[in-house]
Computed example of a mutant assay.
Amino acid sequence: MLESNIKAVNKDIKVLLKDAQALFSAAATLSGEKAEEARARGMKLLDTAMVAAQDAQASALATGKEMANSTDAYVKENPWSSIGVAATAGLLVGLLCCRKS
């Protein structure tokens, strides 16, 4: 779920940034009131992109905290199995690192 949300937000941000670039390019050739209107629309698009990025960051942070809390609860409920898993993982990493090529 989180991965699909991040992909959707990234896609939306890319589209918004391309639109903003196009508006700013058009505003460079315009003058007066039309240029100001194009700049305002571009700034609105950039603000929308920033809000989407902040929402994605907040979602990722909340999910990370939730995962950390559930892991902490599991380790407190099952300390010996957690120690066994950690020791096994350490042993495997040690064997892979010390293996002769």
Results as ranks from 00 to 15, higher is better:
residue 41 R to M: 08
residue 27 A to N: 07
residue 40 A to K: 07
residue 58 A to I: 03
residue 22 A to Q: 14
residue 67 M to V: 01
residue 82 S to I: 00
residue 17 L to G: 08
residue 98 C to Q: 09
residue 56 A to G: 11
residue 18 K to D: 13
residue 85 V to N: 04
residue 98 C to R: 11
residue 49 A to P: 13
residue 38 A to W: 00
residue 67 M to F: 01
residue 100 K to C: 07
residue 2 L to H: 10
residue 81 S to E: 09
residue 75 V to Y: 00
residue 63 T to K: 07
residue 19 D to H: 10
residue 16 L to N: 02
residue 44 K to S: 14
residue 85 V to R: 01
residue 70 S to V: 05
residue 51 V to Y: 04
residue 10 N to L: 12
residue 52 A to Q: 06
residue 13 I to V: 14
residue 94 G to C: 10
residue 96 L to R: 12
residue 96 L to H: 08
residue 49 A to W: 03
residue 14 K to R: 13
residue 80 W to D: 14
residue 2 L to E: 08
residue 46 L to N: 06
residue 27 A to W: 00
residue 47 D to P: 04
residue 90 G to H: 03
residue 77 E to I: 01
residue 41 R to N: 11
residue 96 L to M: 11
residue 91 L to R: 10
residue 93 V to E: 10
residue 45 L to M: 09
residue 17 L to T: 14
residue 12 D to R: 08
residue 83 I to N: 05
residue 18 K to E: 14
residue 96 L to C: 11
residue 22 A to C: 05
residue 11 K to G: 06
residue 57 Q to V: 09
residue 77 E to K: 02
residue 68 A to P: 03
residue 95 L to V: 06
residue 34 K to R: 14
residue 31 S to A: 14
residue 48 T to E: 15
residue 95 L to S: 09
residue 62 A to C: 06
residue 74 Y to D: 05
residue 29 T to H: 13
residue 59 S to G: 09
residue 18 K to F: 06
residue 96 L to E: 11
residue 91 L to Y: 05
residue 58 A to K: 14
residue 29 T to G: 13
residue 37 E to L: 05
residue 42 G to V: 02
